[in-house]
Design a protein around this nucleic acid. Sequence first.
RNA 1: GAGGUUGUAGCUCAGUCGGUAGAGCAACGGACUUUUAAUCCGUAGGUCUCGGGUUCGAGUCCCGACAACCUCACCA
Length: 506
Amino acid sequence: MSEQPAEKPTSYAANLEAARREKLRKIEEMGFDPWGQRFDDHQPIGEIRNRENEIVVEPAGECEIGKPPQQHGPKVRAAGRIILRRPSGKVHWLQIHDGSGTVQVMIGKNQVGEKNWELAQCFDLGDIIGVDGEFHRTMKGELTIFAEDLHFLCKSLEPPPEKWAGLNDPDLRQRMRYVDLIHTGGVLERFLRRTKIVQSIRNTLNGRRFVEVEGPTLHAIAGGAAAKPFTTHHNALDIDLYLRIALELHLKRLLVGGIERVYELGRVYRNEGISPRHNPEFTMLEVYQAYGNYETMMELTEALIVEAIRASGQDLKLPWGDGQIDFTPPFVRKTYDELFAEHAGVPPQDTAAVKTLAEKIGFDTKGKHADVVKSEVFEEKVEPALRGPIFVTDYPASVCPLTKRKKSDPQVAERFELFIQGMEVANAYTELNDPDLQEELFTKQLDGLPEEESMARMDRDFIRALRHGMPPAGGLGIGIDRLVMLLTNTQTIREVILFPLLRPEA
RNA sequence: GAGGUUGUAGCUCAGUCGGUAGAGCAACGGACUUUUAAUCCGUAGGUCUCGGGUUCGAGUCCCGACAACCUCACCA
């Protein structure tokens, strides 16, 4: 087997690395471990900064003339990455950074001793160090750890991005998210806020006695949504499988099985386009509540969102681009037909007029069910106009094969979607639990839709489950990534997903 | 999948009409014990994304490929 010769890096990049490797060698020579060891009892930098009130300034009378007033502060120990260096003769100023914040460190030759001073000569931007010292302000008022002892925790062999502009190329930022998190302002904070939102959602549900479960992600039948699945293969069983496109059908099986309040918060995969609002894998919450209906789910949706906003430390009026979104409950509720009349300018019951409008927009209406045509016009004319938050209720039954019909009008499904800034954020039903009707809807394809675009994919085991009796229930799905976008004022889904899908590097 | 924009040093960016490749930061050497994107002096660093073509001559013009971003389509 012939090894390919290692690709020679450009000579300049090699020089940058060689300089760092030379310092690494010196660090080792001095007896320090360039890759560090266990380092106990350090405090998060954010907490250290909060100890500012422990700083005492000597009374002015005791000051020597021409010298700044003496300060004393707590002894602290910090660990962090060097993100800025200002060497100035026999004193070096550093900014070190950890997940909780940034603090200045002063290293004075006479204060840290000869060996530490030699070590400090080997620091590069990006290295991780430990510092013991006293925490107080400089003459100019900057909160600073005045180093008394230094520890080397990790060498960095790669140069960091430009210190002021940082990483700007969105490709590099997503590919090297680790660099982005360190050097791009607000990125780490946004992802930590995402975590708080997700935690809050779990807390809200757990507090209402919902049970979290983990369904299968490999499905023999990719059901529960209208989407193109990823396919994969299991070798030992020699069967093709799909990555799940929804959580729905297995969670409903658990309703049959007696888990009366159940949810899953997990990843689903859809083999479709990529856009500022779409990533091939995304995080979905689905919740099912026995003996509830879609109105129960509306109240729950409001609670989940309002609690998440509070938990992430924000006001119910959130900034969004140049404007803001007001999440004060209750959210506006309007029916599909009301909104259709309002924004499409055509009576929703007038099938012929809706068809004419659809053709005027440029849609092909041939052989399509009237409700499908209406739904296309709705998506074109109404959805983009919905600033929200607004619950759109009572959809045409024929486009909702998993939803229970209204008792008073079987043409209307008990369903709502929550729209915010033109984005569909949540989707909920009163769940259909009539096995015969469900089987009929699975069998009868929606008029004019190819199978892969239809939700009506036959799942015999699911029908069998329904035949055992599923309690009447409300069900809810929330696109977590989109919700996080809205709650963090982020206009692209790629900035709320740590590692969005990218083409592999050449 | 279609259209548009972009691709130059490790990073952020200039580069005029086609005529020897530029800056800042980072790096390296030197000065500096209160700096704040430290400052000052000096040095080094380039397969101009890749492959063709036109031309005496291409970072620049043309064709193709690759990648990112934006818009649209599919979709949540």
